[in-house]
Amino acid sequence: MDIRQGTAADAEAVAALHTRSWRTAYAGIFPDDYLNGPLVGRQAALWRDRLTGAGDDGGQLLIADNGGGIAGFAYLLPEGDRILLDNLHVDPGLKRSGVGGVLLRHALDGAGTRELYLEVLKRNTAAIAFYERHGGTKAREFVERFPEGFELDVLEYSWSGQVTA
């Protein structure tokens, strides 16, 4: 598996994987009408903007390419002295294959001396277990209000050293 920089040519495939991942990981957490409705357009617009330069936010897309397509991706977003790991998604059929750990280690390497952090839904227990297994430390808890009219509890995890296996 190769880790490469994402390009505008990846926007459609990344949006599709992002949507599949959310529908799998967030079933029963997000409202069904959101996961099966506006999510598709939201993800397509997000990745089209990020990768064509229209929404240039200084972010970096890492693609895990297994030779047969995109196995997973991570998006790093610089925020002063910290780096937000804004997305870390693995194709649902490849969960527990090591792809997520490889992407997380590359994200930490990309953060350099800056703290790497991410936000995860509190009810996403599988992701929380993954982050804790890989050395993440819970930093804070808050409620996120979505424009579609619902709220979810969120946890922030951070790394200031090496990711553990």
Rank of each mutant, 00 (worst) to 15 (best):
V90K: 00
H89V: 08
I83L: 05
G93I: 08
A71M: 07
G93Y: 05
I63M: 04
D91P: 09
E79R: 13
L76A: 00
R96K: 14
L85A: 00
P78F: 02
V90P: 01
F73W: 14
G98E: 12
E79S: 15
A74M: 02
G72D: 06
G98K: 09
A74R: 00
N66F: 04
D81C: 04
F73T: 03
G98M: 03
I83E: 01
L84T: 04
I83K: 01
V90M: 08
G80I: 10
H89Y: 13
A64H: 04
N87M: 15
A71S: 11
L76G: 00
G93K: 08
D91H: 15
N66I: 03
I70S: 08
G72S: 06
L76R: 00
G101K: 07
F73K: 11
K95L: 15
D81Q: 14
G98A: 07
F73D: 00
R82F: 13
L84I: 02
G100C: 07
D91W: 12
L94H: 11
V90S: 04
G93V: 10
I63H: 01
D65F: 08
N66T: 04
G101A: 02
L84S: 09
N66P: 09
P78L: 03
I83C: 06
P78N: 13
L88F: 06
H89I: 04
D91S: 14
A74N: 00
I83H: 03
V90F: 00
R96P: 11
L84C: 07
D91L: 15
L84D: 01
G72V: 06
P92Y: 15
A74F: 00
Y75M: 11
E79F: 15
N66V: 09
I63E: 00
G67D: 03
D81N: 12
A64C: 11
P92G: 11
Y75L: 06
L94Q: 15
D81A: 14
G68P: 06
V90L: 03
A71K: 02
L85E: 02
I83G: 01
I70W: 13
L77F: 12
I63G: 01
N66E: 02
Y75E: 03
G100E: 03
D65E: 12
D91K: 13
F73Q: 07
G101D: 08
